[in-house]
Design a protein around this nucleic acid. Structure first.
Lengths: 346, 346
DNA sequence: GTGAAAGCGCTAACAA
DNA sequence: TTGTTAGCGCTTTCAC
């Protein structure tokens, strides 16, 4: 029924092992027999059995993708399709397949990852997020299983971890400086989930820039919200209820910015006339807000692409050192930032 | 090194076959030995080798996900994370894993799918899109390989295909009728890619509603654009250049609507005062436009969930008939539609 | 209720 | 350059 290597061997008049060698394109097979075998394969429409291969040579040519727990809305961020597109692109080039985690909770995902690893279902894993004290990351690290992370490990003595990140500290610092240069002094920061490494880096960059400008950070100008959109809206309420309203907002994520802008719109606070906004990521739709938002392009595709690249590298050469790749970011100036001009009280 | 069934067998003092039976939870093993074996498994932290299992029992417990070619921007639509979340959810319940296609072009994907199928890498496949004359779908159909599609096969004599769809004809018809009831007569339709089945269904529903209202469809009120956001913007240019501007727009997709609204905003055409808009999908961010958009919730999560459900059903019971599931839709009225009031020319 | 052994389809020594 | 053969780790008859 299913055509195997043996069938091909018979048709091509060679031994099964020869067919196997042709598949692997071994240089120790003559071109002539290679041709003959390939013809037989084509004739029979032969496709090698994946599991048999994996079982025999102990590799799967597939990499596992671990998402944040999809229970919360984070996952709906268009960030993910775009990283996956980057990963896909490299994986495909190098003939690797992609296997997805399906767990909804952290515990489920942890179990899944164990199965993937110990069950030899994947050759390596990419963590699509990075947060503090991540059980999955700790496990992978302890097991010395090949993995790469998008973002960076939080624990500084977790050396020898391959990761692909942006310089989020610098990005946030730059962005704050930009706002400062535009004359803003009351700059608020709307962060995402606090145990996410990127949030921490952003905040530190923001603080640093303020300090450098001799502005002491005020805690009521810093808010964090877990959920993407609602978070954006709640943050606005928090901030706009302050007696001294901020004149500029740094928002952790473009999607959150949509929420922020919508809320502001409802409150009839004009962007950028009354308040400036700058955010991070530059997902596809970020240019479609009204007005189009100023944001930092973090090159999501490249994050994924490089994460796959480094991981596969590590899989193939397990002895090389871990790579740390920083993907450059770039501010995309659109129309949500404006020079601060003091309101004339009428 | 790797712990196998044999190691467990040794520790539990049974034969390997007994361990295997315990894994499969065979009723023909006494509770006492089951316990003993399970303990041994825990003690050794045993995880069965996936490939060995798959090879021996000819199933993989994984389902393949085929996306539209990720070359174009379609893939960045938040629609996809959300269907995948639905699929994930069901798959996880039933202990299935997910394998992703990585090809960028139609040809690459076709090859991949062949490898998945003939290489026994997956037990079934979900097509995350449905378009006319799809090579992949035809192949799967011909091979009688278990698959389900999100959307529906275009070819009406492609019987016995399992699919999960919305009643897109009806949804588009309703939406048009709604606009009609609001007094609009000049209703334009901004569709997506024309060889996508959903676009066709939408357009027919739209036409039907117009016809029922004795309005003859005008071809210059119907535009199609492949790319999601640019498409939205170009569509607006096309439509707004007409001497008789439409007073209402039906837009194929929420993301496109963002593009449309942005363009309208630039042209200082007010929504909904000057023009009403209604669109489809209700992706997470659709409530974050300013003003929040009226759209049809197609229940993306359920589409995915049911597609996985039906597929797995088909995998387990190959002899049952194909299921056709229609997921209900629901109009979500927000703030982009308004009763038509003729402009007073000043 | 449990064990022995063959086999799933492939790869990789080892021979020749 | 190619063939023979012994596994890879599991499942599943067939015995007992």
């Amino acid at each position: 029924m299913t055509i195997t290597i043996k069938d091909v061997a018979k048709v091509a008049n060679v031994a099964p092992s020869t067919v196997s060698r042709v598949i692997a394109n071994s240089p120790r097979i003559s071109e002539r027999t290679k041709e003959r075998v390939r013809e037989a394969m084509k004739e029979l429409d032969y496709h090698p059995n994946f599991n048999a291969r994996s079982l025999a040579n102990k590799n799967t040519k597939t990499i596992g993708l671990v998402m944040p727990n999809s229970a919360n809305k984070t996952f709906q961020n268009p960030f993910f399709p775009e990283v996956i597109r980057g990963i896909s692109s490299k994986a495909h080039q190098l003939d690797y397949g992609l296997y997805l985690s399906t767990g909804q909770t952290e515990e489920e995902i942890y179990e899944e990852v164990q199965d993937m690893v110990q069950g030899r279902r994947v050759d390596g894993i990419i963590l699509l997020y990075s947060k503090m004290n991540d059980k999955v990351m700790n496990y992978l690290y302890k097991e010395k299983f090949p993995f790469s992370v998008i973002g960076r490990p939080y624990d500084p003595n977790m050396k020898d971890v391959t990761y692909v990140n942006n310089d989020n500290f610098k990005a946030a610092k730059n962005v704050t400086e930009y706002l400062l240069l535009l004359g803003h002094r009351q700059i608020a920061f709307v962060g995402g989930n606090l145990d996410t490494v990127v949030t921490i880096d952003h905040m530190e960059g923001y603080n640093q820039a303020l300090l450098n400008a001799d502005i002491s950070p005020r805690s009521d100008y810093v808010v964090f919200h877990e959920e993407l959109q609602e978070g954006g809206q709640e943050a606005v309420i928090d901030l706009m209820s302050l007696s001294e309203r901020p004149t500029a907002l740094i928002v952790a994520d473009d999607i959150m910015t949509f929420g922020v802008m919508r809320m502001l719109n409802e409150m009839e606070v004009k962007v950028p006339d009354d308040i400036s906004i700058i955010s991070f990521n530059n997902v596809m739709i970020s240019e479609l807000s009204s007005p189009p938002m100023t944001t930092v392009d973090i090159n999501i595709f490249s994050l994924g692409f490089e994460a796959a690249n480094c991981l596969i590298d590590r899989i193939i050469h397990p002895l090389t050192d871990a790579k740390k790749v920083i993907i450059p970011h770039k501010m995309i100036k659109r129309q949500t930032c404006k020079r601060f001009s003091p309101k004339v009280t009428t």
